[in-house]
Design a protein around this nucleic acid. Structure first.
Lengths: 213, 213
DNA sequence: ACCTGAACACCGTTCAAGT
DNA sequence: ACCTGAACACCGTTCAAGT
């Protein structure tokens, strides 16, 4: 009973409602009109707090990035990078329908990345790489994680990507896809178990062989 | 004077016009109505050839992927992977406004990937990796290239991401961003010259240290 | 048989009018 | 001073009506 405001439609409430809409019904389901209905206010009331839909999405992404857990600062640097990558990934996977925007909105990512990447840079400082290589290494890791997360998230949506791939493989003349036939001869895609951790290990093995050059 | 059809609005003409709209005015500029106007036909005439907007986008992406140049099958496998990655990247960069869809549309990617990835698999077969590792290696490379291309393409749009990053870095308390301050102390981001080729080299160095395990 | 365009159920955003 | 909602300029898609 402190304030006399009656549910005053804060930025907070707006973002939470909008994010719920996105999480539950997809990115396309977020419309200013539907958001208004969801909040029980006039569709235009939101414009009192946020300039437009783009800004709303930026605010949501900012908020989601802020929820990224800070990975533990313990263990060898390779383990710390794994921790960081999984923390980053968990944020994206918590809101799959938003991931495209997370990975895409450059202004937001620039700001959020400063916050999110600090732990990655701390880990990489322990690797023995030169500062310039640390920056490049961080870029490579971030790009890989973004690509990997994106592949994860888009897979879920509607179709079984693996099945489509195998069907397409069978439909092609032998000569066009000979190498892929050979690679997938015995086990057919079943072992896509942990391409994420594998990729991180590969990248870090590469970095180590570079630093021991 | 062969046929009697008067500019019969083929799938081809539709896709070309739609892609031009996307390339020149952005993904949002593609609407079924505007496409109709562009083609000089009734907005609904397109539906005679393509079931809806989603299918139109899939057709466009398929078409763009088909334009990917087949990289030369010569030189050591590491060079071939570089060739492949640059060919893949060139396709995406030829149509920056479409990249999001290229990377995102799972059904399309599954089909197009079979065609695009064959050269990558051929290169990786020369690496000495076991078949299961070849598949994982291809995943890692594709994910990295996707992430990297995406970062490239979203950067162009509206703001200078590097400037935003540095501004945000300065705005933060020292303790929050100490590692990033140290890394970017001397040269400030100027050397982001070729993070793409660097990343590929890192990944392949990692793969080599794995295969020589 | 083929095409058209009116109509439906939506959008984001502006702005005059109300309380 | 604050909020509302009518209005504008758009959407994708359906479907009855025309030729």
């Amino acid at each position: 009973m402190g304030t006399t405001e009656r549910v005053p439609l804060t930025d907070d409430r707006i973002c939470v409602a909008a994010l719920r809409l996105i999480d539950e019904h997809g990115l396309d389901a977020l419309s200013m009109r539907r958001l208004g209905t969801e909040l029980g206010v006039d569709p235009m009331a939101v414009y009192r707090h946020i300039p437009g839909k783009d800004e709303l999405l930026k605010a949501i992404v900012r908020r989601v990035f802020a929820q990224m857990p800070v990975p533990a600062d313990t263990g060898p640097w390779t383990v710390r990078v794994h921790h960081w990558a999984h923390a980053y990934r968990s944020v994206a996977q918590a809101h799959p329908n938003l991931v495209l925007r997370i990975v895409t909105e450059p202004a937001v990512v620039a700001v959020a990345a400063v916050q999110a990447n600090e732990a990655l840079y701390r880990a990489l400082e322990l690797s023995g790489l030169r500062p310039a290589d640390i920056a490049s290494a961080a870029d490579v890791i971030v790009d890989f994680v973004n690509g990997s997360v994106l592949a994860d998230v888009t897979g879920d949506t509607d179709v079984d990507a693996a099945a489509l791939f195998l069907a397409e493989l069978d439909a092609r003349p032998d000569d066009d896809v000979a190498a892929q036939r050979r690679v997938f001869a015995g086990d057919r895609l079943d072992e896509s178990r942990n391409s994420f951790d594998f990729g991180l290990d590969i990248i870090m093995a590469g970095l180590e062989s570079l630093s021991g050059r």
